[in-house]
């Protein structure tokens, strides 16, 4: 009586699927440091500041790619389909 909808096609085709990601170490526990304390220069921040590498660690989540025209074309094609289906 309960008929499962859309389960038959549940297996997605794996054409362009990315690879399985790496598995991080099984034990995800924070490790004891080999030394108890360290000077500012040996901290991540201090060391990076000394090398001048503290910038550009985070970047914007959007991208103005050069393929804007491609997208425009694609969009127009799809638009025809959308309009055709309504």
């Amino acid at each position: 009586m309960s008929n499962p909808q859309s389960t038959t096609k549940a297996e997605p085709t794996q054409q362009s699927q990315p690879q399985k990601p790496p598995v991080l170490e099984e034990d995800d526990e924070f490790e004891d440091f080999p030394v108890e304390d360290w000077p500012q220069e040996e901290t991540e921040h201090g060391a990076a500041a000394a090398n001048g590498t503290n910038n550009h660690l985070w970047e914007e989540s959007w991208d103005d790619d050069d393929a804007a025209e491609d997208f425009s074309k694609q969009l127009k094609e799809e638009l025809k389909k959308v309009e055709a289906s309504h």
């Binding site: 170490e25 924070f30 490790e31 440091f33 030394v35 360290w38 040996e42 901290t43 991540e44 921040h45 201090g46 060391a47 990076a48």
Partner: peptide
């Protein structure tokens, strides 16, 4: 992150 020892890679 900032205070972590720079060579404590796993942490």
């Amino acid at each position: 992150w900032n205070m972590c020892h720079q060579s404590a890679i796993k942490n």
